[in-house]
Amino acid sequence: MTKKKTITVTSEDRERLERLFVSSLAAAFLDKPYLNDLRQELEQANVVGRGEVPADVVTMNSTVVIKDMKSKETETFTLVYPDEANIADGRLSILAPLGIAILGYRVGDTIRWKIPNGEGRWRVERIVYQPEREGIPA
């Protein structure tokens, strides 16, 4: 993990992610170092209520446009829990390395993160949809 910045997460997202760590689904990922990275991120996170999260922060169920700084290509993903993930439909699991990487970051932030084939760099270009900004209940 090469993230240095403290991320911002909602208290609801943090609680649900902590429950995920002890679920049978997460057991399949226990040998993945990035799961520990997510745990560390959450331990150090700036935790806020749903009404306090800035509109430019990537939260769970946010749809975000990110730019690969190497290829200069942009992709749009919705950050979801593993049971809702379908990368073909643009639904990126929070347990995927890139999912962990973007959680809690803000528009304009550049993220460096270890991925299976090295290290990647992405920039959060914009948030198309954020449930908290839209007033959608958790």
Rank of each mutant, 00 (worst) to 15 (best):
G90Y: 05
E84G: 09
E43C: 07
L25V: 10
K4M: 12
T59H: 08
E84R: 06
N86K: 05
K5R: 14
E18Y: 04
R106C: 05
G120T: 12
L42N: 06
L92I: 13
V65P: 05
L30I: 14
E132G: 00
I94D: 01
W113I: 15
V48Q: 02
D68I: 12
V128D: 04
R16V: 06
R133I: 09
D83R: 13
V9G: 10
R16Q: 06
S24N: 11
K5E: 14
E125L: 02
T110C: 10
E73Q: 13
A101E: 08
A85P: 04
D31L: 03
E119F: 11
L42K: 04
M1A: 14
V53Q: 01
V57M: 05
G108E: 04
A27K: 05
L35Y: 03
Y105V: 15
A26K: 00
P97T: 12
G135R: 00
G135D: 00
L103V: 07
V65G: 04
Q44K: 13
P33V: 07
E52T: 06
T63L: 06
R19N: 10
V124Q: 00
M60C: 05
Y81R: 09
V58W: 13
R91V: 09
V53I: 06
I127E: 00
V65F: 11
I87H: 11
V48R: 00
V58Q: 10
T63A: 07
L79W: 10
E134W: 05
V57L: 03
E125A: 01
G120Q: 05
R50M: 06
L92N: 03
D37E: 14
T78F: 10
I94M: 02
